[in-house]
């Protein structure tokens, strides 16, 4: 079985970022980058599946410029067999991500594409579903458990109401929610070993164009300053003053 895991480079989730004063982007000077947390969870799950079934091969795929190699190396250190970077430095929306991943999937014929439910920078949450359509595959999104067995994938997925069980035939696109697992700590030998694993860089395969474009990034509106109260009585009085309670 072959698993494809897309890996996106994003601003570190705990970094404090602000938009640039001119609104053209985020101020990323001195900001750390990392694998999109949901993609790291997807990669961890792929590695666990491979540990249970060593015949599985895992390819990590990133779309972006040379800076993304850092995150692909980390994916290799986690346990991917090889990595591919589609060299594309432009700002792209999820429809282009889906188009490029679909073209690659048609070439590599994976059984499963395990990916993140959303990028934590753009917060779009679209690429997986769009990719599944382009491949005419079913999808299982927001999963917190997965079992692959006899050409079927069985998942527990998070819904608005709670957990649901869903079964889908392979090939299938699956997206990871936070509770799927906790990614492993990567020890030094893994990082060293990853340096000799193959990381191929190739040109983009489609001429898909973004249909959306971010034209401006502004700081969020500030909440008017609040105040500290000294007791529950004072809190209740303050709420009454605001017409609440």
């Amino acid at each position: 079985m072959k698993i494809l895991v897309p890996i996106k480079r994003v601003i570190h989730p705990y970094a404090k970022v602000k938009p640039l004063a001119d609104g053209t982007g985020m101020d990323t000077a001195n900001i750390k980058f990392d694998i999109n947390p949901f993609d790291e969870i997807a990669m961890e799950e792929a590695v666990r599946l491979k540990e249970a079934d060593p015949s599985i091969t895992i390819t990590a795929v990133g779309i972006g410029g040379a800076e993304c190699d850092e995150q692909l190396r980390k994916a290799l250190a986690m346990g991917a067999d090889d990595a591919i970077r589609i060299d594309l430095s432009d700002e792209i929306d999820s429809s282009v991500v889906a188009a490029e991943l679909a073209a690659l999937a048609q070439e590599l014929s994976p059984d499963l594409i395990l990916m993140g439910k959303q990028s934590t920078d753009s917060d779009r949450g679209q690429a997986a579903q769009m990719l599944a359509v382009k491949l005419d595959w079913p999808q299982a999104s927001f999963i917190s458990k997965i079992a692959v067995d006899g050409g079927m994938v069985n998942v527990t997925r998070e819904t608005d109401e709670g957990e649901e069980q869903l079964q889908a035939p392979l090939p299938c696109v699956v997206t990871a929610d936070l509770r799927l697992n906790e990614p492993r700590y990567i020890a030094l030998p893994g990082i060293i070993k990853a340096r000799s694993k193959p990381l191929a860089v190739r040109p983009r395969m489609t001429d898909a164009q973004s249909k959306t474009r971010i034209t401006h990034l502004a700081p969020p509106p500030e909440r008017p300053p609040g105040r500290m109260v000294g007791s529950i009585d004072e809190l209740v009085a303050a709420l009454k003053e605001r017409g609440i309670a």
Binding site: I11, P13, K16, V17, K18, P19, M26, T120, D121, S122, D123, S210, K211, T212, R213, I214, T215, H216, L217, A218, P219, P220, P221
Partner: peptide, 20 residues
């Protein structure tokens, strides 16, 4: 054809232009 949405957990509000 212009939409506003939160970006990066609300660290910014993005204005998105649709070209479709």
């Amino acid at each position: 054809n212009q939409y506003q949405r939160p970006y990066a957990a609300g660290a910014a509000i993005a204005t998105v232009e649709v070209t479709s």
